[in-house]
């Protein structure tokens, strides 16, 4: 079966993620229903408004199936709002915001400030070879703290001019879950997506041997 990666398509920059994934040579599909989720080997949670996506996940019966897949080891990548959804704990979110979990981190929502504080710049990321990434941060969160099993892949440069953002964690990985506070899908540089697609391909190979991490039967809505 061809490697298929889903992009959660309830709200946000879905098209940009689909384009980036396709440029890595995988089949990429939009996912809005549990039956569509059941057919993918990995999922991308796009940038968007995390409160809106969280609400729609609940309304359309995707919350539990997606949680179950992530818990079962499905490779999952979240950018910005996706990072917020994957975090076990969120600061400055809404009390009724749902967490998918999977990342043992505390994330601060809108940590860099309002839109006038959104910025772009060069950023080195572990696991991404070559030149620094061009990272675009839009009303972005940062990772306030990480649990034992979480690998820190990138931090804001620790220079005085970065102010309170200096040294903040902006890319992490824990097992099959990858997340960035920035939006590689907006730059035309697919290296982060390629890293994720390698994780998905690894999961597919491991899953073929053990039966884990493979698509599961859909729950009816």
């Amino acid at each position: 079966m061809e490697t298929t990666v889903g992009v959660l398509a309830l709200q946000g920059d879905v098209r940009e993620h689909l384009t980036a994934l396709r440029s890595c040579g995988v089949r990429a599909v939009a996912v809005r229903r549990p039956a569509e989720l059941a057919e993918v080997h990995g999922m991308v949670l796009p940038g968007g408004e995390s409160t809106t996506i969280s609400r729609l996940l609940d309304s359309f019966g995707l919350l539990d199936p997606l949680r179950a897949r992530i818990r079962a080891g499905m490779p999952t990548y979240g950018s910005c709002a996706g990072l917020i959804l994957l975090a076990d704990q969120v600061l400055d979110g809404r009390a009724d915001q749902h967490q998918l979990g999977g990342l043992d981190v505390v994330v601060r929502r809108n940590a860099f400030g309002r839109q006038v504080d959104s910025f772009e710049g060069e950023l080195a990321m572990a696991g991404v070879p070559g030149a620094p990434l061009h990272a675009v941060f839009i009303r972005a969160p940062w990772v306030e703290s990480t649990g034992a099993g979480v690998e820190v892949l990138a931090r804001v440069p620790d220079v005085p001019a970065a102010g309170p953002a200096a040294g903040r964690i902006v890319a992490v990985r824990q097992g099959a879950v990858l997340a960035t506070a920035f939006h590689p899908e907006l730059t035309g540089d697919a290296r982060v997506h390629r890293l994720f697609c390698e994780m998905v391909a690894g999961g597919v190979i491991a899953g073929a041997a053990s039966g884990a991490g493979m698509p599961v039967q859909a729950h009816e809505m």
């Binding site: 940038g47 968007g48 006038v116 504080d117 959104s118 907006l186």
Partner: peptide
Amino acid sequence: TGTGRVKRGMAEMLKGG
């Protein structure tokens, strides 16, 4: 801050909303 990409990117995040 305030680049074209950051401004347009903000709108990209609102899509479908």
